[in-house]
Nucleic acid binder design. Sequence first.
DNA 1: CTTTATCGTTAAGGTTATGTTAAGGTAACC
DNA 2: GGTTACCTTAACATAACCTTAACGATAAAG
Lengths: 233, 233
Amino acid sequence: MNKARVLVVDDEKAIADMVQIILYKEGIDHVDVCYSCQEAEQKINTGIYSLYILDMMLPDGTGEALSIKVRRRSDAPLFFLTAKTSDADKLVGFMHGADDYITKPFNPLELAARVKVNLKRYLAREQVPQVYEFGHASLDVASAQLIIQGERIALTEKQFHLLHLFCKHPNQVISKEQIYEYVWGYDDFINDNTIMVHISKLREKIEPHPEKPIVITTVRGLGYRLNVVGDRT
Amino acid sequence: MNKARVLVVDDEKAIADMVQIILYKEGIDHVDVCYSCQEAEQKINTGIYSLYILDMMLPDGTGEALSIKVRRRSDAPLFFLTAKTSDADKLVGFMHGADDYITKPFNPLELAARVKVNLKRYLAREQVPQVYEFGHASLDVASAQLIIQGERIALTEKQFHLLHLFCKHPNQVISKEQIYEYVWGYDDFINDNTIMVHISKLREKIEPHPEKPIVITTVRGLGYRLNVVGDRT
DNA sequence: CTTTATCGTTAAGGTTATGTTAAGGTAACC
DNA sequence: GGTTACCTTAACATAACCTTAACGATAAAG
C-alpha cells in the first residue's frame, strides 16, 4: 500500500486537500493533488498512479472527459466525486467508466475504506511470483525449489529457510546467531555444527564446485554471506 | 453479464426480493435469494456465484461470518447491506473482506450501478478455467470429475476441494494449515492425519504410481505441492 | 422403518526422509 | 607450528509422513 500513488483532482482546494490528508493518515504517502483539468492531464499522462479521484465538475472541463484520458493510460481504479444534488440517472452513466463514486459531503472513513479496498485489489493483481536471483541459480519461494539452468531442485525445509534468509539479505554477513534465530527459533539451543552441516548440504546443491564455494562464502568469526552481483535487494 | 449469478441474503423478504427485481431489470437473470445463514451457507458452498450481497444482521448469524465462508470458496465481489444507523467506524473493518457496502435505504439505480461495475470487472479478469490441466490428467470443475485419458473419474467432496485448491495454486507449496482452512474451515479442529488420508486417497486416483507420487509431492515440514510442469522431486 | 452403501474420520503400525551428533580432517590466523 | 574456527562424512534417532482397516454418521434404497 505504501508504494501506491494516488491522484486527486478537485477545484475546491479545501476538499482536495482534505482527501490528501485522509489518505495520508491511512499510510498512503504519495497523494498528488491538482485543481484543474489542464494540470490533471499532464499528471494523468505519466500513468504512474494506482488510483484516481476526480471531481465531476471542474472549471475547465468535466471529470468524465478526464476519465477517458485516464483509461487510455491505465486501468487503475477511478473514483468520481459528485455533488449530492446530481440526479441518480446520471450516475449510472458515470459508473460505466468508474470503479466507485462518492457524493459530497462524504464520510472520511468511508472514503478511506473504499480507497483501500480498491487499491488492495488493484495492487494484488500485479504481484509477481517471488523469485530471488543469485549467481547462476535462483530460488522460487512459492514452490520452495531451487532453479538452476531451468532444472528444478528440491530443498528440505531447513535448507529452504536457510537460503530464504540469505536471499532476503544479499551481500550481507549473517551471523550464526541470526541464522539460528530465523531458522530454528528462540527456544532451543543447538550446536554450532548443526548450522555448518546444513550450510554444507546447501552448498552441495547451489555451488558449482562445493569444495570451493563462491555463492555462499564464509566470513571467519562473523558468519556467512550470499554473494549477488546485480543486487537489487 | 448474462451468465453472471448473484446471491442475495437478507432476512427482510421485501428487501431481498426488491434487490432481485432491480438486478433482473438490469439483465441479470440468475439472482438467487435466501433469508437465513443456514440457507446461505449451502448456496455459498457451491461456489457458482459471481457476486454476493449479504445483509450484516441475520437472525441466525452475521454477514461477516458468511463473508468468511464466501472467501474460502471464491474471490468474487462481495457487498454488505447495512442499516444506516451503524456507525462509520465499523464499516472500515467490514470493508476488509468486502468490495462494497450499501446502506439501507438505498437508491436502486446506485445499487444496480455498483453491481454492474463490480461484475464487469470480475468477469473480465476472471477467466476461471473450467478445466485445469496438470500432468497427464485434468480436473473438470463444473462436474467435479477427474479426466484421465478421456476417462471420467468421480471425486468425493473433500477430494474435489482439495484438488481444486491445488489447481488454483499450481507449483506452490501449500501448508497443512492452508489446506485445513480452505477445505474444512475455521470452526473445527481436525487431525493432521485426516489431511494425509485424503491426500492418500486422492493420489490413488490421480497418480500413475501412487506409491511414488509425482503429481502431488510432499515437501516435508512445509506441505504439499501440485507439479504441473515436467519436474521431478 | 430397516437395510445398504458411501464417505469422512480416527487409530495403529509401518516407512522414510531429515536433522542432529560425533569424529576426523582442513584451511586460516597468530 | 599451534591454536582456532570451520568443513565433511557417515551413523543414528526421530519426527513427519503413508497406508490399511475399522468405525460412525449420513443419505439412499428397499
